[in-house]
Simulated assay, not measured.
Amino acid sequence: MIHLPLVRQGPLRALAVRVVAAVVLVLLTVSVIYADRDGYRDLNEDGLTLLDCFYYAVVSLSTTGYGDITPVTSQARLVNIVFITPARVLFLIILVGTTLEVLTDQYRNSLRVNRWRRKLKDHIIVCGYGTKGRAAISALLETGYDKSRIIVVENREIALRQATANGLVTIEGNATRSSVLLEADVKNCKAVIIATDSDEASVLITLTVRQLTAGQVRIIAAVREQENAALLKQSGAHHVIVSSSTAGRLLGLTTTTPPLIDVVEDLLTPGQGMALAMRSAERSEVGSNPRELQTLVVALIRRGKVVALGGEHAETIETGDMLIYIRDEEKSLPVT
């Protein structure tokens, strides 16, 4: 089931509004009838009391109409034509309003889903909206990626509500199932990020994605244990991040060389200090040594592989290279 972000009125509030509207309409009808009670005839011919007016209003608005109280004067009949009949129609609309709203919401949601599917292109599927999934989406948004092209696949109700509340498109279901991934249009997506809490689930999702896409979609997965990284690589993941070993290495660096962890945190924290960035090599930079550029280049991406700049052999920039450099986040912030 696809859930598009939507701000909706609470069901209790919607029901309360309808109840109040129905009561107000009944009271207004009673007041009109009571003011013109002399124009009505009762079978008992003892005149209309306030209770009789309530009774006539309810049976009239509900279209029951027992006929024991009837308008006999021209004025009373005119009031029935001008006021009671439209009030009866309005009362019925209020009673069936909930059903109409449900049908309308379903139709409107179907139109929104169809419109969303037509515009969907180069989207990214994030399997899991836990700590890792939320952090991955935050990183995507920080790089300027369109939020509407991010799809969260999750089967936990709380996580689904959080993702929808944050304006993300969500699909309820288990990402290990082919039908759920096909609902997310996995065959035409740009990449799949696997951020589940279980290494076993990550392997199953990777195998399913590879089977559905014939290996044409990039798969980025996170695992807890180092020994499962090779299994994920064999299953078809292009990049595997081991969360436990990465956290352990950072803990070790913090113990032995505390300043290093500050630099790493600075690089990973968006909006302040330094940040890693990537850009295409400019024509004027081709043939130059990356170390001679004004920006601090730390690596080159050449034909999909990382070219380290260390060692005795001096690398030069070639056409088509991507430069990995350190950007000053504070200088790149827009001036307000």
Rank of each mutant, 00 (worst) to 15 (best):
K187G: 04
E265H: 09
A76N: 05
N289F: 04
S138M: 13
V102G: 14
I158H: 06
V58T: 09
R117G: 09
L15K: 12
D266M: 03
E292Q: 08
E200Q: 09
V30I: 11
N166K: 10
Q294I: 06
R134S: 13
G67A: 05
D68W: 00
D262G: 14
I194R: 02
N155F: 07
Y55D: 04
D105V: 11
S288V: 03
R37I: 00
Y40K: 01
L181Y: 05
T208C: 07
A175P: 11
K147V: 07
V20I: 10
V17H: 08
A308S: 15
R224G: 03
L323G: 04
L90P: 00
P259R: 08
Q234L: 12
Y145C: 12
T99A: 13
K331P: 02
D105F: 10
L25V: 06
N188R: 13
R249Q: 11
R112M: 10
G130Q: 06
V306Q: 14
I150F: 10
L296R: 14
D105N: 11
V286G: 06
R177E: 14
P259A: 07
E330L: 06
V113N: 02
H3Y: 06
N80W: 03
R108L: 15
R283Y: 03
R134Q: 15
R117W: 10
S284V: 01
I2W: 12
G236T: 11
L231S: 07
D146V: 05
L212E: 07
V32D: 01
G39S: 00
P270R: 01
T256W: 15
T131E: 14
R279C: 09
Y129R: 07
N114T: 12
M1T: 03
L309K: 12
P270D: 02
E318F: 14
P334F: 04
L6K: 12
L293G: 07
G310F: 13
R327W: 05
Q294H: 00
E227T: 10
A230I: 09
L15N: 01
T316W: 05
L43S: 13
R210Y: 04
L95G: 10
A139Y: 11
Q162W: 06
L43N: 05
R291D: 15
V209C: 10
V59H: 11
S198F: 05
R117V: 04
I241K: 02
R149T: 01
A159S: 12
N166G: 04
T254S: 15
T269M: 06
T254K: 11
Y56A: 00
V169G: 04
V82H: 06
N114I: 12
N228C: 03
L4W: 01
T49F: 09
N174P: 02
N44W: 05
L296F: 15
